[in-house]
Amino acid sequence: MMKIATAQLWVLDQQEALDFYTKKVGLEVRSDVTMPEMGDFRWLTVGPAGQEDVAIVLMAIPGEPVLDADTGAQLRELTAKGATGTIFLTTEDIDTEYAELGARGIEFTQPLTDMPYGRDFAFQDPSGNNVRVAQLAPM
């Protein structure tokens, strides 16, 4: 049986993304490894406490030879517009999460809202990626 281990978000600045996801969102560092033999490629992952088998890769947008200059520029522009990534998080106490994230300086793109599937809110990370947090209604 296969399982999801990691999902990736493109980020414009890995250190800024790391600070945002750990200090404001409250995720934990899973790995932070720089590989000199691969041109100082940095493998940086974060994840929620208590869910150690899942991580989000905060992936820097690469240059050549992986991406040519034009493609890299297009990807940076699309990422900044919020067009390249969304993560969906769930919680059992959405009111507390909303209040705590707001107190840590998160600027919401959608306030806490009742939806057909439960209640949720949204914000963007510094790179433009969308984050949605939901408390799902009982089924």
Rank of each mutant, 00 (worst) to 15 (best):
L27N: 05
G39P: 13
D13H: 11
P36R: 03
Q15M: 12
K24A: 12
Q15A: 10
R30P: 14
Q14C: 00
E28H: 10
D32T: 09
Q15N: 15
T22G: 05
K24P: 08
T22M: 05
V25T: 01
M35S: 07
V29F: 01
V11S: 01
D13C: 12
M38A: 12
V33E: 11
V11P: 00
G39T: 11
G26F: 05
P36D: 08
D13A: 07
D13N: 15
V25L: 11
V33M: 15
G39K: 12
L12D: 02
E37G: 10
M35T: 14
L27E: 02
Q14M: 11
L12K: 04
M35P: 01
D19C: 08
Q15C: 07
T22C: 00
V11Q: 01
D19E: 09
M38K: 09
K24R: 14
R30W: 09
V33Q: 14
E16D: 14
F41M: 12
V25A: 07
L12R: 05
V25D: 02
E16I: 11
V33A: 12
T22D: 11
S31P: 10
T22P: 07
K23R: 15
M35W: 07
D19S: 14
E37W: 09
V33I: 14
E16Q: 14
D32R: 07
V33N: 13
P36E: 02
F41H: 05
D32M: 06
M38D: 02
L12P: 01
V29A: 01
D19H: 15
E28I: 03
V33L: 14
Y21P: 05
D32E: 09
V11W: 01
E28P: 09
D19R: 14
L18P: 06
E16W: 09
Q14D: 01
K24S: 09
T22I: 02
M38I: 13
M38W: 10
E16L: 08
T34A: 07
M35Y: 13
T22Y: 06
A17G: 08
R30E: 03
T34V: 15
S31N: 11
Q15D: 15
A17C: 06
L18Y: 13
Y21T: 02
G26L: 05
S31D: 10
A17S: 10
V11I: 09
V25N: 03
D40H: 10
V29T: 07
F41S: 03
R30C: 03
D13R: 13
D40T: 06
D32I: 04
Y21R: 04
G39E: 00
Y21L: 05
S31L: 10
E16V: 08
Y21W: 13
G26P: 06
L18V: 08
L18S: 09
D19V: 13
L18C: 06
K23P: 06
T34H: 03
L12Y: 02
F20G: 01
T22Q: 08
A17R: 08
L12M: 04
T34G: 00
F20V: 04
T22F: 06
S31G: 04
E16S: 11
Y21M: 06
V29E: 08
D32L: 04
G26C: 03
E28F: 01
G39V: 07
R30F: 00
Q15W: 14
V11H: 03
T22W: 06
L18A: 06
D19M: 13
D32N: 13
Q14F: 01
G39L: 05
E28V: 06
